[in-house]
């Protein structure tokens, strides 16, 4: 339970948002050429980091826009909020 600073609406309670999981997982450019191993990596394998992780969130009960968050999963502290399409901040 924490506060998320939506880049469009400002600070709101976490329960207004939907977690979208790990960010910056790029959709395969040529899906027909992918091996089963590469599909498994893309679809299922996750970093699941204990520490600062880059993830996607959606303001589902607000503006309904997607954005990225850098959050420390060991204490739920949010480091940075940045918009979709922007590069992850270097820590």
């Amino acid at each position: 339970m924490f506060i998320i600073n939506c880049p469009y609406c400002g600070e709101r309670d976490q329960q207004e948002f939907k977690a979208g999981g790990e960010a910056h997982i790029e959709r395969p450019k040529q899906p027909t050429e992918l091996s089963d191993d590469e599909w498994a990596e893309y679809l299922f394998m996750r970093k699941n980091i204990k520490g600062v992780q880059f993830e996607r969130w959606n303001h589902a009960h607000g503006c309904r826009k997607w954005f990225n968050v850098a959050r420390d999963t060991s204490n739920d502290e949010i480091k940075v909020v940045y918009k979709m399409g922007e590069k992850p901040p270097l820590e």
Binding site: M1, Q14, A19, I49, K50, E55, T73, D76
Partner: peptide
């Protein structure tokens, strides 16, 4: 469960 990754052993009130 909460729907986000977390290692805090707490969870949300709602």
């Amino acid at each position: 469960t909460d729907d986000y990754v977390s290692y805090t052993q707490k969870g949300s009130h709602q």
